[in-house]
């Protein structure tokens, strides 16, 4: 970038006076970038601040007036049974989906990393669910999980087992949405891990093989440690997207039966049955603080990555 800029700058200086040129460039910059920047500022950054303000109000969505309650909503959230339930569901969902899609993604990546015909097709196939509508995918899986007419219940019956009550049992509902979320996202992890595996230095792998290391030792003592930047990248991006999971949870458990994660609970409180805008905003702020910590880690990682490479 530096070389590009200085080249253009010197070309400009040769032509006209620097001052008017800089002023004109500033106008060009604003004309090009301002619409996008203004939209991002107004619809992405402004809501973060507005949410913090809303979170201090006792305010019913649609009502004309609201009472200022300070940290009341936060106190209510953290002292009510909501907090352990919501934070628990968020924690279980996040750990299980991130862990599940990364471990399975790595396994798929390792098997994709062989020189067998058809692997390009398999790679596309496993990635496909990642780009599909979470609502459509959730609906398909809801049918598969149906305790009476679902394909899964049929499979279980044919081996002599009764289908679990996926929909009615809150614990199983959470398991169900986790399974679907992992199914949708493991292809992303697999493709990213595959790229990591393919960029491993071949001479190191060769040296380990010549030293007599077996396949398992080579994987755990050589490949996996060398993949650590990829693992860290996936950990952060998966954490971020898990904390934002909404579509699958909403379509499969419309009223949040054991699946009230932070994001879904914030939605239910404001737009579900309760219309509690202030309380919902407080939950959103809690979620945002969590995401902020993740983002901080991500930015530090980008920095580290530069030194690594």
């Amino acid at each position: 970038m530096a070389s590009t800029m200085s080249a253009l700058d010197s070309a400009g200086r040769r032509g006209r006076a620097g001052g008017s040129r800089a002023r004109r460039d500033a106008w060009v910059f604003l004309a090009l970038a301002l619409p996008n920047l203004a939209l991002i500022a107004f619809f992405t950054y402004r809501p973060l601040l507005v949410n913090m303000y809303y979170s201090t109000l006792d305010w019913t969505l649609g009502a004309m007036d609201a009472t200022v309650v300070g940290f009341g909503n936060y106190v209510e959230f953290f002292t009510s049974p909501d907090a352990p339930a919501v934070l628990g569901a968020t924690g279980i969902f996040t750990v299980a989906t991130v862990g599940g899609s990364m471990v399975l993604g790595l396994l798929v990546a390792v098997s994709l990393n062989q020189k067998v015909p058809g692997r390009t097709l398999a790679r596309s196939a496993v990635f496909a669910p990642y780009v599909l509508s979470g609502v459509g995918v959730g609906m398909v899986w809801l049918f598969i999980f149906d305790p009476v007419y679902g394909a899964l219940s049929w499979v279980l019956r044919s081996v002599g087992m009764a289908s679990p009550q996926w929909i009615n049992d809150p614990k199983l509902s959470l398991v169900m949405v986790i399974i679907v979320y992992v199914w949708k996202n493991l292809g992303y992890c697999a493709v990213v891990y595959l790229a990591g595996l393919q960029s491993l230095p071949q001479d190191v792998m060769e040296a380990a093989a010549l030293d007599g290391a077996g396949p398992l030792r080579r994987f755990f003592l050589v490949s996996f440690p060398l993949l650590s930047p990829t693992t860290f990248f996936l950990l952060i991006t998966s954490l971020l997207s898990s904390l934002q999971a909404f579509d699958i949870i909403k379509i499969m458990t419309p009223t949040g039966n054991g699946t009230g994660t932070l994001i879904f609970e914030a939605y239910l409180q404001a737009f579900g049955a309760y219309n509690r805008a202030g309380y919902s905003a407080a939950i959103s702020v809690v979620l945002f603080v969590l995401l902020l910590i993740m983002t901080g880690l991500q930015l530090r990682f980008v920095e580290r990555k530069v030194h690594y490479a």
Binding site: I40, R46, P47, N51, F271, M294
Partner: peptide, 23 residues
């Protein structure tokens, strides 16, 4: 600084902004 702001916006989920944007 502008680029950094865009980078951070990349990580702010739209779900957090729905209530203020709805209002």
């Amino acid at each position: 600084a502008i680029f950094l702001a865009i980078l951070v916006a990349l990580m702010v989920p739209p779900q957090v902004s729905v209530l203020p944007n709805y209002i």
